[in-house]
Amino acid sequence: MTDRASFMAAVASTPRGHDPGLPDRAAAPDAPTELRAGESPLDRFQTEAEAVSTIVERVDAAGAASAVAAALEAAGAGAVAIAADLGDLLEPVREACRSAGLQVDDYADVAPERARAAALDATVTGCLAAVAATGSIVTTGATGRAAALIAPTHVCVVRADQVVDGLHALVDGDVLAAAGSMFALQSGPSRSADIEKTLILGVHGPGRVHVLLVV
Protein backbone atom coordinates (compact mmCIF):
# COMPACT_ATOMS: atom_id res chain seq x y z
CA MET A 1 0.00 0.00 0.00
CA THR A 2 1.40 3.36 -0.99
CA ASP A 3 1.24 5.89 1.83
CA ARG A 4 1.20 9.62 1.50
CA ALA A 5 4.92 10.02 2.10
CA SER A 6 6.08 7.58 -0.54
CA PHE A 7 3.47 8.81 -3.02
CA MET A 8 4.63 12.38 -2.57
CA ALA A 9 8.26 11.31 -2.73
CA ALA A 10 7.68 9.95 -6.24
CA VAL A 11 6.07 13.21 -7.30
CA ALA A 12 8.90 15.26 -5.80
CA SER A 13 11.74 13.05 -7.04
CA THR A 14 11.98 14.47 -10.54
CA PRO A 15 13.69 17.74 -11.43
CA ARG A 16 11.43 20.75 -11.77
CA GLY A 17 10.61 22.17 -15.16
CA HIS A 18 10.42 25.83 -16.02
CA ASP A 19 7.92 27.69 -13.84
CA PRO A 20 6.37 30.64 -15.69
CA GLY A 21 4.91 31.92 -12.41
CA LEU A 22 1.28 32.15 -11.48
CA PRO A 23 -0.61 34.93 -13.28
CA ASP A 24 -2.21 37.52 -11.07
CA ARG A 25 -5.93 37.10 -11.28
CA ALA A 26 -7.17 40.35 -9.82
CA ALA A 27 -9.17 41.20 -12.93
CA ALA A 28 -11.69 39.09 -14.79
CA PRO A 29 -10.27 37.46 -17.93
CA ASP A 30 -11.71 38.37 -21.31
CA ALA A 31 -13.70 35.17 -21.67
CA PRO A 32 -17.19 34.24 -22.90
CA THR A 33 -18.08 33.62 -19.26
CA GLU A 34 -17.60 37.27 -18.26
CA LEU A 35 -19.79 40.34 -18.62
CA ARG A 36 -18.83 42.71 -21.43
CA ALA A 37 -18.40 46.42 -20.76
CA GLY A 38 -21.70 48.27 -20.56
CA GLU A 39 -23.87 45.17 -20.34
CA SER A 40 -26.70 44.95 -17.87
CA PRO A 41 -26.16 41.93 -15.62
CA LEU A 42 -29.87 41.14 -15.39
CA ASP A 43 -30.40 41.36 -19.14
CA ARG A 44 -27.35 39.24 -19.86
CA PHE A 45 -28.48 36.69 -17.27
CA GLN A 46 -31.85 36.43 -18.93
CA THR A 47 -30.38 36.18 -22.43
CA GLU A 48 -27.91 33.46 -21.49
CA ALA A 49 -30.39 31.50 -19.38
CA GLU A 50 -32.96 31.56 -22.15
CA ALA A 51 -30.30 30.50 -24.64
CA VAL A 52 -29.96 27.23 -22.71
CA SER A 53 -33.75 26.77 -22.48
CA THR A 54 -34.31 28.15 -18.98
CA ILE A 55 -37.64 29.92 -18.53
CA VAL A 56 -36.91 33.33 -17.02
CA GLU A 57 -39.61 35.48 -15.53
CA ARG A 58 -39.11 38.78 -13.73
CA VAL A 59 -41.33 39.32 -10.70
CA ASP A 60 -41.47 41.80 -7.85
CA ALA A 61 -40.83 40.80 -4.26
CA ALA A 62 -44.49 40.93 -3.25
CA GLY A 63 -45.51 38.68 -6.10
CA ALA A 64 -42.66 36.16 -5.82
CA ALA A 65 -44.48 33.50 -3.77
CA SER A 66 -47.57 33.46 -5.97
CA ALA A 67 -45.34 33.41 -9.06
CA VAL A 68 -43.70 30.24 -7.69
CA ALA A 69 -47.09 28.61 -7.29
CA ALA A 70 -48.09 29.68 -10.79
CA ALA A 71 -44.82 28.30 -12.22
CA LEU A 72 -45.49 24.96 -10.51
CA GLU A 73 -49.03 24.85 -11.81
CA ALA A 74 -47.83 25.65 -15.30
CA ALA A 75 -45.49 22.66 -15.04
CA GLY A 76 -48.39 20.46 -13.96
CA ALA A 77 -46.72 19.68 -10.64
CA GLY A 78 -48.56 17.93 -7.79
CA ALA A 79 -45.92 16.89 -5.26
CA VAL A 80 -43.44 19.62 -4.49
CA ALA A 81 -40.46 19.99 -2.17
CA ILE A 82 -39.18 23.36 -1.08
CA ALA A 83 -35.60 24.02 -0.02
CA ALA A 84 -34.59 25.89 3.11
CA ASP A 85 -32.44 28.33 1.15
CA LEU A 86 -35.62 30.17 0.10
CA GLY A 87 -35.07 32.04 3.38
CA ASP A 88 -37.70 34.69 3.97
CA LEU A 89 -39.70 33.35 1.07
CA LEU A 90 -39.97 29.84 2.52
CA GLU A 91 -43.23 30.34 4.39
CA PRO A 92 -44.92 32.56 1.78
CA VAL A 93 -44.06 29.99 -0.91
CA ARG A 94 -45.39 27.16 1.26
CA GLU A 95 -48.61 29.08 1.77
CA ALA A 96 -49.03 29.96 -1.88
CA CYS A 97 -48.45 26.36 -2.94
CA ARG A 98 -50.91 25.05 -0.40
CA SER A 99 -53.51 27.53 -1.55
CA ALA A 100 -52.95 26.29 -5.08
CA GLY A 101 -53.73 22.77 -3.89
CA LEU A 102 -50.18 21.40 -4.20
CA GLN A 103 -48.68 18.89 -1.83
CA VAL A 104 -45.76 20.72 -0.25
CA ASP A 105 -42.96 19.28 1.86
CA ASP A 106 -39.58 20.49 3.01
CA TYR A 107 -36.77 19.12 0.84
CA ALA A 108 -34.86 18.20 4.02
CA ASP A 109 -37.71 15.91 5.04
CA VAL A 110 -38.17 14.33 1.62
CA ALA A 111 -34.51 13.81 0.70
CA PRO A 112 -33.75 10.92 3.08
CA GLU A 113 -36.72 8.95 1.77
CA ARG A 114 -35.68 7.84 -1.65
CA ALA A 115 -39.07 6.74 -2.89
CA ARG A 116 -40.64 10.03 -1.91
CA ALA A 117 -37.83 12.06 -3.40
CA ALA A 118 -38.13 10.10 -6.62
CA ALA A 119 -41.86 10.74 -6.80
CA LEU A 120 -41.53 14.53 -6.61
CA ASP A 121 -42.87 16.52 -9.54
CA ALA A 122 -40.92 19.64 -8.74
CA THR A 123 -38.50 21.26 -6.38
CA VAL A 124 -38.35 24.92 -5.44
CA THR A 125 -35.05 26.37 -4.29
CA GLY A 126 -33.38 29.66 -3.71
CA CYS A 127 -29.74 30.07 -4.58
CA LEU A 128 -26.46 31.39 -3.28
CA ALA A 129 -25.90 33.48 -6.38
CA ALA A 130 -26.55 33.63 -10.08
CA VAL A 131 -23.98 34.29 -12.80
CA ALA A 132 -25.06 36.82 -15.41
CA ALA A 133 -22.61 35.92 -18.16
CA THR A 134 -23.41 32.22 -18.12
CA GLY A 135 -27.08 32.27 -17.10
CA SER A 136 -26.23 29.94 -14.22
CA ILE A 137 -27.77 29.56 -10.82
CA VAL A 138 -25.44 28.66 -7.97
CA THR A 139 -26.63 26.37 -5.22
CA THR A 140 -24.78 24.83 -2.29
CA GLY A 141 -24.88 21.90 0.06
CA ALA A 142 -27.30 23.93 2.15
CA THR A 143 -29.75 23.99 -0.76
CA GLY A 144 -29.37 20.25 -1.13
CA ARG A 145 -26.94 18.65 -3.56
CA ALA A 146 -29.65 16.94 -5.55
CA ALA A 147 -32.36 19.52 -4.93
CA ALA A 148 -32.04 21.08 -8.35
CA LEU A 149 -31.98 17.72 -10.18
CA ILE A 150 -34.17 15.18 -8.46
CA ALA A 151 -37.51 16.25 -9.96
CA PRO A 152 -38.64 16.87 -13.57
CA THR A 153 -39.16 20.55 -12.81
CA HIS A 154 -36.90 22.93 -10.91
CA VAL A 155 -38.18 26.36 -9.92
CA CYS A 156 -35.49 28.69 -8.62
CA VAL A 157 -35.94 32.08 -7.01
CA VAL A 158 -33.10 34.49 -7.73
CA ARG A 159 -32.94 37.92 -6.12
CA ALA A 160 -31.54 40.63 -8.36
CA ASP A 161 -28.86 41.42 -5.78
CA GLN A 162 -27.65 37.82 -5.99
CA VAL A 163 -26.65 38.15 -9.62
CA VAL A 164 -22.88 38.48 -10.06
CA ASP A 165 -21.31 39.59 -13.34
CA GLY A 166 -19.37 36.54 -14.41
CA LEU A 167 -17.56 33.40 -13.42
CA HIS A 168 -14.61 35.37 -12.10
CA ALA A 169 -16.77 37.38 -9.69
CA LEU A 170 -18.23 34.14 -8.41
CA VAL A 171 -15.04 32.18 -7.78
CA ASP A 172 -12.82 35.09 -6.85
CA GLY A 173 -15.09 36.99 -4.43
CA ASP A 174 -16.56 36.39 -1.00
CA VAL A 175 -19.74 35.00 -2.48
CA LEU A 176 -18.62 31.43 -1.90
CA ALA A 177 -17.65 31.98 1.73
CA ALA A 178 -21.07 30.57 2.66
CA ALA A 179 -20.82 27.59 0.31
CA GLY A 180 -20.57 24.83 2.92
CA SER A 181 -19.51 21.38 1.74
CA MET A 182 -19.94 22.13 -1.94
CA PHE A 183 -21.21 24.60 -4.48
CA ALA A 184 -22.68 23.95 -7.86
CA LEU A 185 -23.69 25.77 -10.98
CA GLN A 186 -26.59 24.73 -13.11
CA SER A 187 -27.38 26.32 -16.43
CA GLY A 188 -30.66 25.21 -17.86
CA PRO A 189 -32.24 21.78 -18.11
CA SER A 190 -30.20 18.60 -18.10
CA ARG A 191 -29.10 17.70 -21.61
CA SER A 192 -27.38 15.10 -23.72
CA ALA A 193 -26.36 14.89 -27.34
CA ASP A 194 -24.85 11.40 -27.10
CA ILE A 195 -27.22 9.81 -29.61
CA GLU A 196 -26.10 11.11 -32.99
CA LYS A 197 -25.68 14.61 -31.61
CA THR A 198 -29.43 15.10 -31.22
CA LEU A 199 -30.03 17.42 -28.28
CA ILE A 200 -32.32 15.91 -25.65
CA LEU A 201 -33.40 17.79 -22.53
CA GLY A 202 -34.18 16.24 -19.17
CA VAL A 203 -31.78 13.32 -19.20
CA HIS A 204 -31.04 12.84 -15.51
CA GLY A 205 -31.95 16.23 -14.16
CA PRO A 206 -35.01 18.36 -14.85
CA GLY A 207 -36.39 18.91 -18.31
CA ARG A 208 -37.89 22.19 -17.15
CA VAL A 209 -36.04 24.93 -15.27
CA HIS A 210 -37.97 28.04 -14.36
CA VAL A 211 -36.16 31.00 -12.84
CA LEU A 212 -38.09 33.73 -11.06
CA LEU A 213 -35.92 36.80 -11.04
CA VAL A 214 -37.02 39.02 -8.19
CA VAL A 215 -36.38 42.63 -9.16
Binding site: P32, G141, R145, A184, S187, S190, R191, G205
Partner: peptide, 29 residues
Amino acid sequence: LLTGHGTGQQITTYVSVLGGPRGAGEPDG
Protein backbone atom coordinates in the same frame (compact mmCIF):
# COMPACT_ATOMS: atom_id res chain seq x y z
CA LEU B 1 -11.78 26.79 -22.08
CA LEU B 2 -12.70 23.26 -21.03
CA THR B 3 -16.35 23.67 -21.93
CA GLY B 4 -15.86 25.94 -24.93
CA HIS B 5 -13.24 23.69 -26.51
CA GLY B 6 -15.02 20.52 -25.43
CA THR B 7 -18.51 21.17 -26.72
CA GLY B 8 -18.69 24.82 -27.73
CA GLN B 9 -20.86 25.58 -24.73
CA GLN B 10 -20.61 28.74 -22.66
CA ILE B 11 -20.54 26.47 -19.64
CA THR B 12 -21.65 22.89 -19.14
CA THR B 13 -25.11 22.48 -17.69
CA TYR B 14 -23.77 21.23 -14.38
CA VAL B 15 -20.60 22.20 -12.59
CA SER B 16 -20.04 20.74 -9.13
CA VAL B 17 -17.23 21.83 -6.85
CA LEU B 18 -17.07 19.31 -4.05
CA GLY B 19 -15.31 20.06 -0.80
CA GLY B 20 -16.08 17.06 1.37
CA PRO B 21 -18.96 14.86 2.52
CA ARG B 22 -22.39 16.17 3.49
CA GLY B 23 -21.98 19.02 5.95
CA ALA B 24 -23.80 19.57 9.24
CA GLY B 25 -27.35 20.75 8.65
CA GLU B 26 -27.30 19.92 4.93
CA PRO B 27 -30.32 17.96 3.69
CA ASP B 28 -28.53 15.43 1.47
CA GLY B 29 -25.16 14.32 0.21
